[in-house]
Structure formats: structure tokens, C-alpha cells
Measured scan of single mutants.
Amino acid sequence: MQRVNMIMAESPGLITICLLGYLLSAECTVFLDHENANKILNRPKRYNSGKLEEFVQGNLERECMEEKCSFEEAREVFENTERTTEFWKQYVDGDQCESNPCLNGGSCKDDINSYECWCPFGFEGKNCELDVTCNIKNGRCEQFCKNSADNKVVCSCTEGYRLAENQKSCEPAVPFPCGRVSVSQTSKLTRAETVFPDVDYVNSTEAETILDNITQSTQSFNDFTRVVGGEDAKPGQFPWQVVLNGKVDAFCGGSIVNEKWIVTAAHCVETGVKITVVAGEHNIEETEHTEQKRNVIRIIPHHNYNAAINKYNHDIALLELDEPLVLNSYVTPICIADKEYTNIFLKFGSGYVSGWGRVFHKGRSALVLQYLRVPLVDRATCLRSTKFTIYNNMFCAGFHEGGRDSCQGDSGGPHVTEVEGTSFLTGIISWGEECAMKGKYGIYTKVSRYVNWIKEKTKLT
């Protein structure tokens, strides 16, 4: 034993070699072989497995989906700052455009905790909710729209109204504003409101030439003092309507412009014939205590009207009353817009006519005020429907199939267009061939041609 100890002390290297040989010859039971080890760690190889990531292109799944990435790591994937920024906006807080917040056709661009709407022409605001041009839906104005110097929408209202708090709607500024039905039992019968379409306001006024200088022999019209197929109006439903009495009662109609003036057809009036105007009328054979009678003290036909040349060209006249009318729910003026808007309103496509005229061709006159909704007829169809001249200051309205029309005794009465609950004068009943005849239409004086003249002559002093 002493000898062994001496050998170990003198030859430590020998001992180490012996131990190493023993270990190498022993069977290893701690580690699995290569094949079995792979069965336990069965993990798919990654895209760049075996390579240094710093030297390969980034992978979106590896960089940002398996674990949260930084902007720089995302930049490695896209290799483009702009594309990385677009991805980053949604990656950080989701897609803010998912709810489609942009209105009126706006395009949404996502941002971090926010979004941006790219608005089409005519709109602005956070969600493109603000109209900035009158060309689109009248700028959301209830009545009139004008573009300011910086191309912003400025709404306005006709006389007797003021802008509401929203700067879009119009509200009454006087007790009985024009064009409004205020009798409670008839307010439910107000005709369907007309909503502004998209309009090209630059070209809204037709490029028409008034044929002022045409000389033409007097034409022989049949029954051209021209509501057939209409309905009984309720008291106060058309408070701007008046009836004219002269040699015979209810020979023509008219509309209240203001307390002192009536507008009617020029062919209705004769110099030297006494005319009485009755406002607030409903049943011409009954006294309903809503009527107001006034005498006409002055007749002003349009300066281009000449019955000797043509009885229905420039067929418009103004009547001055001896005493002002007292405005109330049964006696209310009709609204008159400017030339541009009167023309736009007419193009809405349908209007209402009213009167006490004959209820059928050569038949009896109506006792109760009649009204009828009539569609506008395109000019080409209008011209083809008659052998008589249709001037540019006239328009056609009615039904091709016949059966409904204005008729004798309705002449001078109103053709009105309702705009968001307020009625505007767009025409004056003038003439036609018979009444409600198939293929024939009622012919009306186009008020847009005469609004400046009306307003100039009827100013209240």
C-alpha cells in the first residue's frame, strides 16, 4: 500500500490518463441519441435557420407576430419608411378606419389613436360632414345658397324668414311668412316636400332668348283662358290664391305678392273693366268669414305684352289694390325667389296649380277651390304637342294621358313649387288646347323671366 501511494504521488498524470480511459469505455446513459432527441424537440425550422439574422431580410411573422416588435424591426421587413409607417399605425392600436367614419364618399386613412378623412370636392370637416359648395344638395341650405369668396357655403332665406341657429334652416321672422300653410287642420295635408338634388348652379339658368321682337298675326285659340281631375282644397291650404270678379264672377285667378299687390295673367284683364279681388276665398257660393274683398285701382301688364300681336306672350300683369290686405292664416303671400332659384325650383319637376275653373272641358265651374299636382314636361315634348308657338318664356306641365289639367277660369292662378315646406311661385296658368285632352298640356308663363320686374313694381313704400 505504501508503494502504491508513492507511485500516485510521483505520477499524477498517469492516474488522470487511467481515469479518462475508464470513462470513455463506459456506456453513456444520461444523453439520448440524435434521433430520439429530435422526437422530443420537434420544432419547425425557421426561415433563416442556421444563418445569422443580421444578414437576412426581415420576416413579418418572425419579427412582429411571434413577439412584439419595434418600429426598427418592422422597418427591416418593409425596407421602406412609408410602408412601415402605414403598417405601424394599425399594428400599434388597430384600424381606426374600420367603422368607416368618413361621410359623403370620403376616404379614410388610419393613424395612431386617430384617423384622417380625405374629402371629395365640396366637403370638409373631420368626417367630411361639412358642405362647402352650393353645387351639392344646395349646400344643405333649406332655401338659398351662395358661395363666399373663400368658396364656403353661405345660406340665406327669402323675405319674412331668418336663418336658424344651425345656419342652414329657415324659420319665420314674421307672423305670416310667405308660402307657408298655417291653418292647423290643413298642415297635415301639406304636399310632399321637395329635397334639393345635386345641381350645376353655374349652368342652372337656361341660355334662352326671349323672342321679344317676333311679330306674329293673332292666333285663334280655343278655350285658351284655361282644375280638371283635381281635388277639393281645404280652407287655408292655398292662402296665396285669390279669385278675380268682373263682368262675371271667378273669371280668373291670381296670387298675393304682398298686402297691396296681386300677380295674374295679362290676358285676364281689360282696361276700363272694374275688377274686384277676393282673398281668403274657399267656396265661392258661401260666406265663410275668411274672405277679404278689395278693388283694383291700377293694372300693370308687362311692358312687352301686346294682345294685338299675341294674347299669351309675356302673359303676366300686376294688380294694385285700393287697401292693403290683412295677412292671416287664410290670406298669405306666395314666396318669389330670384331668377336663378325660381328656375331651379321649376326644374324640380312638379308643381301645384289651383283655381275655381271648370271641372271638365266646357263644363261647370268649381264651387270649392280645386288643386292638382302636375309634372313638368320637357321642352321637346311640349313643342311636338301643339302647332302653336311655345315661346321661351312659357313652359308645359300636365299629363300625356289627359284627364287632369287646369281649365277655363283658372287662368292667372299660381303654379307653385314647394321647397322644404315653403311654396314659391314658378308659373302662372296661361293657356292650353281644350282641357285635359290626351297628348295636350297646360301652358304656363315662366315666372323666372319676370321676377325682377315683379319685385321692382310691387315694392311697398
Rank of each mutant, 00 (worst) to 15 (best):
A308R: 10
T16V: 07
E82Y: 12
K109M: 08
T276F: 04
E10K: 11
I214E: 12
D249K: 12
L189F: 11
E124C: 07
S11P: 08
L327E: 03
K146C: 04
E418S: 13
V451F: 05
E54S: 09
S365G: 04
H303G: 10
S169H: 03
F224W: 11
E76P: 15
I284S: 07
C268M: 00
E420V: 12
V30H: 15
P301W: 07
G13C: 09
V359D: 04
G427E: 01
Y312T: 03
S11Q: 04
P44F: 03
G403K: 12
C335M: 00
P175Y: 05
T290V: 07
E259I: 06
G21L: 10
Q167G: 03
V331I: 10
G427S: 00
S365P: 04
G94S: 12
D223L: 12
E193H: 11
C28E: 01
P239I: 00
A380D: 14
L321Q: 00
V377T: 14
D315S: 02
Q237S: 05
F388H: 14
Y305F: 09
G403I: 15
L372D: 14
I214C: 11
N304T: 07
E270N: 10
K89Y: 05
A37Y: 15
P197K: 12
K311T: 08
G413T: 13
P172S: 06
V174C: 04
S354N: 09
R180G: 03
N48D: 15
E159R: 04
E231W: 07
H302S: 03
K137A: 07
N151K: 08
F123R: 14
C102V: 01
P101C: 02
H289T: 10
I112A: 15
T29F: 06
K347Q: 14
H400C: 10
G229Y: 10
L20R: 01
W431S: 10
F360H: 13
C28G: 07
E98V: 06
N343H: 12
P324Q: 04
F388P: 14
Q167C: 05
F399V: 13
I336C: 00
L163A: 02
E61I: 07
Q167S: 10
V263D: 00
V296Q: 00
S255A: 14
I344P: 03
E66Y: 06
S255N: 02
V195D: 11
C117G: 02
T445A: 04
S354D: 01
I454H: 01
K438Q: 12
V242D: 01
D95N: 09
C119K: 03
G179N: 02
Q185K: 08
K440A: 10
M65C: 10
C335E: 02
V248Q: 11
L318Y: 00
G236N: 05
Q370F: 02
D212S: 05
G122L: 06
V326I: 13
S187I: 10
V257F: 01
S187R: 08
L346G: 02
L211A: 04
G21E: 02
V451C: 12
T290R: 12
G272P: 10
T426E: 00
D410S: 07
K446C: 10
R62W: 06
F71A: 15
D95S: 14
P324K: 09
L189E: 11
K347F: 07
L369G: 13
L318H: 00
C117K: 03
L425S: 02
T389L: 13
F251S: 07
V451T: 03
V263W: 00
E129R: 09
G236D: 03
K146G: 04
C18R: 01
P235S: 11
V228C: 13
M65P: 15
F345Q: 02
T287P: 07
R75T: 15
D338V: 03
V416D: 00
Q219P: 12
S70E: 15
D212M: 07
C396R: 02
G13M: 06
T16G: 07
D212Q: 13
T85P: 15
N306D: 13
K362S: 11
K45M: 04
T445H: 07
P301C: 08
I136W: 03
S423W: 12
V447N: 01
E53I: 06
Y444G: 03
A233S: 08
